[in-house]
């Protein structure tokens, strides 16, 4: 397991834990306050972004060389992250638009929340792609087709 894979695992775990914790908060607030206030509990998913601090704890191995394969995996992970985050925003925006009446009003604070959501989904999918691609690659024999 290399440095990027370790960081990715920490990121995936931190986002997953934060998401489940926020689900518990939403359920608790739904019972006590009711909807739509309970939806605000999902803001706790942003704590999953703390996984970015993993780069401080996972030290860089100076003996390793970044080759073309690493660059290709990096580009693929970022592409997947951007596509997933953009599509999720499209589905969310259109879902809210269809769910509510066409001329209804929404809170302006939904805009920074959308930015947070898109960032979290990007980080999650990027990390997941790193794990899958490096995991897939490690099963191949040396010199095998990536």
């Amino acid at each position: 397991m290399n440095r990027i894979t370790k960081q990715s695992w920490i990121m995936v775990l931190s986002i997953s834990i934060a998401f489940f914790a926020s689900c518990i908060v939403v359920a608790y607030w739904a019972a006590s306050k009711g909807f739509p206030e309970a939806w605000h509990g999902f803001i706790f998913t942003c704590f999953g972004g703390a996984g970015y601090f993993a780069c401080l704890f996972v030290k860089k191995d100076k003996s390793l060389i970044v080759d073309e394969r690493d660059l290709a995996i990096k580009a693929l992970a970022k592409n997947n992250g951007f596509i997933a985050s953009y599509l999720s925003f499209c589905f969310l925006a259109l879902g809210i638009f269809i769910y509510k009446k066409p001329s209804s009003l929404i809170n302006v604070n939904i805009l920074p929340m959308c930015v947070c959501l898109v960032g979290i989904i990007f980080a999650f999918v990027e990390s997941l792609t790193y794990i899958i691609e490096y995991g897939k690659d490690s099963k191949l024999p040396e010199g095998g087709i990536v």
């Binding site: 925006a93 001329s103 302006v108």
Partner: peptide, 24 residues
């Protein structure tokens, strides 16, 4: 997103039209 939020927030507007989400 953040420009719109700053624009509305500092003018004391709390709600926006839902159409903005699809325009975004």
């Amino acid at each position: 997103c953040l420009s719109l939020w700053v624009y509305y927030h500092f003018r004391g507007i709390d709600t926006i039209s839902i159409d903005i989400l699809t325009v975004l």
